[in-house]
Structures are given as structure tokens and as C-alpha cells.
């Protein structure tokens, strides 16, 4: 089939894969990508539960505004869309 928009997937070279954990579950991500990017690829979509109705929520605005991707790293609440994947990072649900 003719494509006017080329598929560039094979031309992307990413950094080495590293392991981290999310809520105890081992996840692989590329060093330096955002946590949201790695968690999406690993199909770990539910990052938190809404405080009032406990409904599952995931990354939404991807630019540090909505706070839906708030997770715990080293005891601090951080936005997963603004936090980089690093080897052995321990990420917990809030």
C-alpha cells in the first residue's frame, strides 16, 4: 500500500533498557524516557485511584498540569510525565 507518511519506527534508536518497579511489579523502560512513556508501553495504565470514588486513573495531559499521573518516588509525590526512568527506580502508587 502507498504511504504518504513514512513509517519511521525502525529508524528510531533508543537508549539501553533498564529495570525499575511500579507498585512492586518489574517494568522495563529506556533510560531517560518519562515514566509515563515506559508505563504506557508496559500496559501499566492505572497510575492512581481518584480520592473520592476510587476510580482508576492514568496519565492524561502528559505536560505536568493535570496531576493524574502523580506517583511516589523516594517518598516524594512526583508527576510520572515529568520524571525520567532510571535503573532500579522504585515507583509506588500514592
Amino acid at each position: 500500500m502507498i504511504r504518504l507518511v513514512p513509517n519511521h519506527a525502525d529508524q528510531i534508536e533508543r537508549s539501553e533498557k533498564v529495570k525499575f518497579t511500579f507498585d512492586g511489579q518489574p517494568i522495563e523502560g529506556h533510560a531517560g524516557e518519562s515514566l509515563v512513556s515506559a508505563l504506557l508501553r508496559a500496559n501499566a495504565l492505572t497510575l492512581r485511584h481518584a480520592p473520592n470514588d476510587a476510580a482508576p486513573r492514568g496519565a492524561f495531559c502528559c505536560m505536568g498540569l493535570c496531576q493524574e499521573c502523580a506517583v511516589l518516588v523516594a517518598g516524594q509525590v512526583v508527576e510520572a510525565c515529568r520524571t525520567d526512568v532510571a535503573a532500579n527506580l522504585i515507583v509506588e502508587r500514592v
Binding site: 534508536e13 533508543r14 518519562s34 512513556s37
Partner: peptide, 8 residues
């Protein structure tokens, strides 16, 4: 991000 070494 730093995770992209090269891309078109």
C-alpha cells in the same frame, strides 16, 4: 528525551 539516541 535522553532516551532517543537518534531519530528522523
Amino acid at each position: 528525551s535522553a532516551s532517543i539516541r537518534s531519530a528522523p
